[in-house]
Design a protein around this nucleic acid. Structure first.
Lengths: 328, 328
DNA sequence: GTGAAAGCGCTAACAT
DNA sequence: ATGTTAGCGCTTTCAC
């Protein structure tokens, strides 16, 4: 195509890439661009990648895409950041299958990704992903034991505080917490946040007001709801581990003729739109920042990890914003 | 690395790619492979792509990733199919932004994708995606006017029939249908299916039993629920346009003391797990085949579109399976 | 069965 | 400011 423009192949390359050190005259540049447009010329990314010995690929590994809208949000955030930096995402979903993970890893390595973000659908501790030692790596929604790799995770404690705060600010003093019995960053963090909020309001923490469920879903919320109403000192407000528990709780409450929020205020966690926004009354909750997790991870890779000196890895907390609706 | 194995670069290439016409002796092949493994050698996909003048990329364009789990399922199906054929997906999400779509298109073209699947999050008519005339193309969950491009879409009519059948098979004769008022493949198809099922059971179609809503969500379901109960000839069963409407309907029914399924049987559509599986009682519904849509589209591209003669494009209907639970 | 050599379509020195 | 040239790491004839 350079030929058709009557210039050398090198000049064409310069013209098209419009470097800052513009080694080509404005005139010829325009001419080349015009000819290129006319011919519908598109540079071959493979050739460019090979020649520059560098691609514009970033790998994104998720352990689940479809179970929740969370992965979608994370992908969207990562995608937006990638686009802003003219990079393209190589996405692989492992569904927690080690074989799939291995395949994904080598696929990415073979394609010379510039870095990879490894993400999980729920916030948890992971081992250093195998085979990814040679590449700039960042974790989204998970972290490793000594935090020896950079990670971005939700600020569970802050979220727990915000959730409780939603209730406390409305004047509630007997606030129950339905927590997940499984130890995890979420259950531990939210509990800490709940206690901190109580403390800030001069309310003593009462262990009997925190109930736990082993599978935090609608069924559990329903069951624990009935337990809750039989407490000797019935709470006037409940902070639920997640929106699904809150949804089940709504059912239990309704069955017992307890109205939300008049007789009992409720807040959830996760901000699962399809549930939270459409319960009756709409559920006040706290959002998990999946979009930001994806966005920040990718941006970190592109702006920090790739330009030495490589920063020391840390676990970066991303806020979980409160989403007030009508259940308080 | 060939050098380290003491063979020529060409031989190494042959050994590694293990062609059928094995131009290399078993002995050297094993030797090369051993050395490669030892050195942790991985072929450079960029170089390979450039050399072969063909990549193993397939583009996947979605118009939304996060709003529903639907896109996730479709991606998962596509990804699985791609993996099975040793291809890798280049995913772009446009969020219905034309600029993003243009960018996605040229990104894919620049990367020499072998084909692209264009998908939408709800089943609809689309115009031929711009800029994609030069590439093998397949539509998932959408189709074009004259069906001049291959597409895979849900069998809405079959799904509607299955939904109604769930109710009819349980002996119901007065079955209402809450439809979406907006004309669409879904509303038209499901209505046809509903009527066909009625006919098959020798029941006369009564237009007054089909109510419509303009935004098929929980709020609409709630509102229409009250309307429904005021019908002179109250139905004993309802087929809802989707699970969200059913969720709202549950609320209305409960308010009026109408029990599901004893006083009123309900079926939904979409099989949105988070709702359907956890309503009380769990909602019988019909699933949208997003996984298959993605899987079939990709498989078609890889097996049909890429091997001449190119098949004539058709709109292929994918079944929507009934998911019986406890609301009938 | 194995090796030499010519590209694939670009980028980046290095000339001019 | 523009052209020449040497690769980037592979695949693939074509000789041997």
């Amino acid at each position: 195509m350079a030929d058709r423009a009557g210039v050398s192949i090198a000049t064409a390359s310069f013209a098209i890439n419009a470097k800052e050190t513009t080694k080509v005259s404005e005139a010829t540049r325009h001419h080349v661009l015009a000819v290129a447009a006319e011919l519908g010329y598109r540079p071959n990314a493979m050739a460019r990648n090979l020649s520059k010995a560098r691609t514009s690929f970033i790998g994104l590994i998720t352990d689940s895409v479809a179970t929740t809208p969370f992965a979608g949000e994370l992908i969207r955030g990562a995608q937006d950041a990638a686009r802003a930096h003219h990079h393209v995402l190589l996405i692989a979903n492992t569904e927690s299958d080690p074989a799939a993970a291995r395949e994904a890893t080598s696929m990415m390595l073979d394609h010379q990704v510039r870095g990879v973000v490894y993400s999980t659908w729920y916030h948890r501790l992971v081992r250093h992903p195998a085979g990814l030692s040679g590449v700039p790596l960042v974790l989204a929604n998970c972290y490793t034991d000594g935090d020896e790799v950079q990670s971005f995770v939700p600020d569970e404690e802050g979220g727990g505080r915000s959730a409780a705060e939603l209730l406390l600010a409305a004047g509630h003093r007997r606030v129950a917490f339905i927590n997940h019995s499984e130890p995890s960053p979420a259950s531990a963090g939210r509990l800490r946040g709940y206690r901190a909020a109580l403390r800030a309001h001069g309310i003593r923490y009462r262990p009997d007001l925190v109930l736990t469920v082993s599978h935090p879903d609608q069924e559990a919320g329903y069951d624990v709801g009935h337990r809750l109403l039989r407490l000797t000192l019935r709470p006037t407000a409940v902070f639920c581990y997640n929106d699904r528990v809150a949804m089940g709780l709504y059912d239990a409450l309704r069955e017992e003729g307890v109205r939300v929020p008049d007789d009992m205020a409720v807040v959830g966690f996760d901000n699962q739109e399809i549930i939270a926004a459409h319960l009756r009354p709409a559920l006040s909750t706290v959002a998990l920042p999946h979009y930001e997790l994806g966005h920040r991870s990718l941006t970190w890779l592109l702006t920090q990890a790739l330009t030495p000196p490589a920063p020391a890895p840390t676990r970066t907390l991303i806020p979980c914003p409160a989403i007030p609706r009508h259940s308080v």
